[in-house]
Design a protein around this nucleic acid. Structure first.
Lengths: 133, 133
DNA sequence: GCTTTACCTTCCAGTTGGTGGAAGGAATAT
DNA sequence: ATATTCCTTCCACCAACTGGAAGGTAAAGC
């Protein structure tokens, strides 16, 4: 099967599939005319990658996970470690975003949002800089 | 004052300040030797940018906010719109991350994480692809 | 058989928001 | 006089793609 059919089946754009090959995440066979050819095994790997990416794993983590997946002697502890680290990073990001969200909510709620120029949002952003010591 | 002193005062690296000038977010005067010189007004703008960036506003939103700030005839509704859109985007990101987090938590908790190879995390990632249609 | 369309290839450039480093000039300290 | 620090510009790199150009191949229509 050619790249566009594979793309349809796994829900990953052809460009992205080529990109994954470029960076060595996957490999591919070529037919005589030079076209990439995908079989069930390739689709399986692509699907794995799609799932991992949709959970937010970085490409490098995906590379690790794929390597672990293909190693029958892996320890599940290794896999768990990768997943846990990723979850910790997600937790950090959520907290950062929630902190931003809290400030933004306060600011948005304090602004009347009419045609007049006075604006607590701009006031907050332009507040005098506090010198660190 | 030179760039490194300004950098210290507003807490933005010199590289980043030059970058902001490069993309036209701010301007700067030069002294005779070609060095950038910053006054209170410049620090004020930089500080504004630092605050906006720390709230997660994109560079383009910062550009808009700065323009609004410098326009005495602005309508606060414009500012509020920018802030609200940004908060909405943050909300989206938080939801995405929380969805990922939920799946990851389930997976991590289901994996024993020992020296054996069987792993529910890898099983989930490698589950057979469901064909759309 | 010829042409059009659709698909494939590679390669180059752009996205966001900076950061690192090299090469070279200027100011300050010793 | 020299060493160190600071300044300048420019180029390259990070993640994870995406868009588009230039050119070859395959399938469909007439």
């Amino acid at each position: 099967m050619n790249i566009s059919e594979a793309s349809e089946l796994v829900g990953i754009p052809p460009k992205t599939i080529r990109y994954y090959e470029d960076i060595g995440l996957i490999s591919s066979h070529r037919s005589e005319n030079g076209y990439r050819v995908y079989d069930a095994r390739d689709l399986h790997m692509l699907n794995f990658l799609g799932r991992a990416r949709s959970l937010g794993f970085t490409i490098e983590s995906c590379r690790s996970l794929l390597a672990l997946y293909q190693d029958p002697d892996r320890a599940s502890a290794e896999v768990k470690k990768v997943a846990q680290q990723h979850r910790d990073e997600i937790d950090c990001k959520i907290e950062e975003l929630q902190a931003m969200r809290a400030v933004l909510t306060t600011l948005v709620e304090s602004c009347r949002g009419d045609e007049r120029p006075d604006c607590p949002i701009l006031n907050a952003l332009s507040a005098p800089l506090k010198l660190h010591q």
